[in-house]
Design a protein around this nucleic acid. Sequence first.
DNA 1: CTATAATCGGAGTCGTGACTCCGGTTACGC
DNA 2: GCGTAACCGGAGTCACGACTCCGATTATAG
Lengths: 211, 211
Amino acid sequence: MRADAVRNREKVLAAAEAAFAADGLKAQLDDIARRAAVGVGTVCRHFPTKQALVGAVCTRMYQSLLDRARQALQSPDPAEAFEQFIVALPDFHRRQRAFAELMANELATSPELALPVRNELMQAITELVQRAQAAGAIRSDIGPADVSMLFSGVAHATAVLGDMQPALDGRFVRIVLDGLRPEQASELPGRPIDFAQLRRLKQRSAQRRAR
Amino acid sequence: MRADAVRNREKVLAAAEAAFAADGLKAQLDDIARRAAVGVGTVCRHFPTKQALVGAVCTRMYQSLLDRARQALQSPDPAEAFEQFIVALPDFHRRQRAFAELMANELATSPELALPVRNELMQAITELVQRAQAAGAIRSDIGPADVSMLFSGVAHATAVLGDMQPALDGRFVRIVLDGLRPEQASELPGRPIDFAQLRRLKQRSAQRRAR
DNA sequence: CTATAATCGGAGTCGTGACTCCGGTTACGC
DNA sequence: GCGTAACCGGAGTCACGACTCCGATTATAG
């Protein structure tokens, strides 16, 4: 691959990230091209479809989130590790607004982009949760997928709130965290959900939709 | 207005509700017309723009939600009133999936559809929260807008989860409710948010975006 | 029952936005 | 340096979806 090609590919990715951050998923290819100081053709050669571009941007985001999760896992205290990761989330989402939107929709959509990074991230989250539970830092009647579902909600709120008081979603996270502490009053309906189960549910739901 | 006209208007509204429920806001006018067993022209005469149709459907939804809030306010026990209203939310959203999406986006968008019903609903929620706080049923460091923000998250999750196990969002609500109980560990950043403040924040944010 | 005015339907218009095509240009191998 | 092959750009294509227009139809007034 030629040197200028890689350079442009990089410029496009950066521009796409910025554009998605500003306008969400509905950001236009033309705008992305303009931001990258590049023709539309170039964008479309590197990423044959918008979906592909989204996928590429998404992968980077997941990677960066995975890094955070791994960093949190370094911490010797499981409770702190969990909290550290969770509290960092809206901060992350604020910077990557579009990704919040993407990720928030992720659960339901785009099974087509089966990103290996995502699996690793799920792995890391699972570990974070299990360790925290073993240490008695969070309630035992939840599963990893419950956590990710919860934070798809946080992600969404962050995306919607936009540049309003950052404090707002900080409050949201703290409230949810409090709800996750051990020995809470409510009995949760159903059973703890992990990622394998979530996937099964998703498939069944997709089948139902197909009919 | 002629009798068949009202009848059709009603059919269109019902069809729109169903279509939005199935496909979200991106449901197509043609599809709505087909569901209503009516021509596209009819849809567009009754509702000159898609926005208007959305507004009309939205108003009904708010009305129905308001009814629930008022019903909850009837309960003599403030704690139970609050919980009753909140727990009913995802159930409501499941039936009205699109509305969940609408409502979830509401915070940021569509200041143009200034629905009077919405104001009444905010009033009712404010009362529900204040009474519950006075009775010591929920923590005192939150405001009504915090609650609605939180449940915009729930709404989103419900929308995304779709027809997956209804238990999933039931779990979500219980966890958030637990996080709202008095005397929790976390200290929330910032101050309690009420609707007036939220509106101000929104305006400032809109101005910033305009520049 | 008939005149009339409003309503209905769906084929057609128009705008928008993703993607293609090809002449001109720029980077590597020799 | 120079030939070649890959890359660049942006005007144009194409599909899709919101909305319009007008002949056919149907409800009310007298």
